[in-house]
Computed example of a mutant assay.
Amino acid sequence: MNIAFLYIAEAYQCYHGASIALELAARPGVNVVSYYNDPETPRHLERIRMAYGTPPVAYRRLRRSPPTRLMQSIRILGMFKEMVMRDNASELDQYDAIFTLEDTVASARRLGIRRPKLIYSPHGFGDRARGFDARAAAFDFVLVAGDKSATRLLKSGLVTAADHAVIGPVKLEVSARLRVQHRPFFKHQRPTVLYNAHKAPRLTSWHKFIEPMLGQFGRQTRFNLIVAPHVKMFRRRSVSVRSMWEARSTDTIIIDTSSDRLMDMTYADAADIYVGDVSGQVYEFLAVPRPCVFLNARGVQWRDDPNFAHWHLGDVVDDPKDLLSAIGSAPERHDFYRARQEIFAKASLGDRSAGAAERGADAILDFMGRSASVR
């Protein structure tokens, strides 16, 4: 059986799927090739492989036609994923299955990729509708971490009982393998606040809150602050822009726009209080229940909106002037939210026992076996 793992987007998605590729590659009769679009991807794949101690595996850069190369050279415009898929359609069509973490691959049939089974594992654990897009229905098999995602996909008619599996949080397992002892991030031992802003232009709290936040934290002595926005927020920005932000770090504030720590849960593990908006990374943080504060930068009516369900797991701040007060109160108010955090984290992350990648590989092979038997 030949399976292509298709990393068509940025390298951060490796942490959600590469361990499944390693597990499949160790199974008899299974050949796995990892295709990538982002040139940074092999370094991350190797980082994960070495953490698992497995033999080398095949990586292959996706072919890019001259028009695709030209468009990708304009970095701010993105990865041009569909163009890349079209450039590689004939080669990818030779596989028995394609595994992806990116819903763009839903267009594979339209681009001429008809032979392989399409297997999709949505990256992340969040509540936003973006994670439950109608494109999920285009896949032959879907892997999700927890019952929350499975239930929502089932209710939307995007999957059936037979064409999905719940396997647990692959990224948490990978991050645990990668975990290393870092020297203390700060000179002063104080509670650490993690600010994790999402990249979504219409929902991010960054533009409204970052400057007041830096000002307030710069004038206090109670907390340290890690500013760790979604890795894609600055990915398409110039080195000079990223360096300008990181240069504003101090003895009590870290601003990180590009390091591996934005992807591997280093900061989530190190923090005591989470501050954020709509990122599903809150559930990575809540693998261990801790105080949270959420930022409503756009006056969203969120209370009955399932896309903001996680905002019921901590106090919500609308005005930057109330931010530091809410953070200061968060530890003593945590008892009010702890039980709900545990329930939501269980539904989102699923089975946290060892073996998420193994369960994913088992589910894929079971599905492929069932598919072969009905041909």
Rank of each mutant, 00 (worst) to 15 (best):
L203A: 13
G112R: 01
A270T: 02
L101E: 07
R290H: 02
V278M: 02
A200V: 15
A339D: 15
L349W: 14
G168H: 03
P201N: 12
V278A: 06
F223L: 14
V239M: 14
I3Q: 07
I20H: 00
P67F: 09
L158S: 01
W206F: 10
R179W: 10
M265Y: 12
F132A: 01
L24C: 01
P169N: 14
L153N: 06
P291I: 03
R64Q: 14
Q72F: 08
R152C: 04
D366E: 05
G78T: 05
D315T: 13
A106V: 04
M1Q: 13
R235L: 15
I226M: 07
R303T: 14
S19T: 00
F209Y: 07
W245M: 10
V30E: 04
D256P: 06
D305W: 10
I3F: 08
Y120R: 05
R128C: 06
I76T: 12
A161D: 15
L323M: 11
L365P: 04
R333H: 13
S156H: 13
F308N: 09
G314M: 08
R61I: 08
R236M: 11
P229H: 05
A89I: 11
F344Q: 12
G276R: 01
Y283W: 10
L70S: 12
Q216K: 03
Y7G: 08
A363N: 04
T252R: 12
I3L: 10
A356S: 09
T160D: 14
K187L: 13
D362W: 05
S121T: 09
Y267W: 00
S205I: 09
A345L: 09
R219H: 02
R179G: 00
R63A: 08
I3H: 05
L365E: 10
P122H: 03
A21G: 10
A247E: 07
G218A: 11
V317L: 13
L22R: 06
M50R: 13
K148A: 15
R43F: 10
S348W: 09
N37S: 11
L143P: 11
A58L: 09
A136C: 11
D305R: 10
D140F: 06
P42Y: 07
N307T: 13
Y267E: 03
